[in-house]
Amino acid sequence: MKDMDKSFRKDTETEFPLREEMRPRTVTAPDGQVIEIDPLRDYFCEEAPKVHRKSYSAIVEGFYNWARANSLWILGFGTGCGAIEMRPLMTPRFDAYRYGIQWRPTPRQANLLIISGYLSVKTLKRAIRAYEQMQQPKFVVGLGSCTINGGMYWDSYNTIKRLDDYLPVDLYIAGCMPRPEALLAGLMELKKIIRRGEAEGANKYAENFDWYKANQKSVIKDWDMPDYSW
């Protein structure tokens, strides 16, 4: 194992300055009117997410969960090496479509986010935004050991180690990298979890919103977006 410099202390003092386009400013409109703009407040909605109840009747909820399990729409967003293992699922050999799994290009229409490998801090920011723009109920699958404990990037200064500190993860698929078969098996397992009604990640996220946000902000130093991207 490599030796570590025990005396190294990371710089916790320096604040990252807010980007110029995000700073409050005053603008003079063409007709002479002077307008105050605070982009972070004016451009975005500040509301926090809320917990969405299950449907009142257990039968209806079960029926809905069955539909959700059989129509998994994956957001086409690949983050690490593992993204390359998602593509074969569309091919004749694995053909995930027969299980009702499809890929959607926009987060609005997707309800499954697969974090397919290591996540650098820069990508984490995008992943959080994508996750928050998805509609409830939504599920997160962590693919590969990088999302579990850092994998082979365990000592990297720029990749996170535990995905569940930042997003509510429903299921992990271990391996470096997991083969498409493992991915399919994982998705089948996820279906079972959904049908049991245990995949309530979005509600968990809303309940522990402050904890998640504190974790996210502790690694993303240039936080220049609203707390919840609607």
Partner: peptide
Amino acid sequence: RDFDTLAYSQQTYRDRPGRAT
């Protein structure tokens, strides 16, 4: 080279217990 990436990552990201090297 005086930036220690291991030390930095341990001070920044939480470890999952049970990881063996």
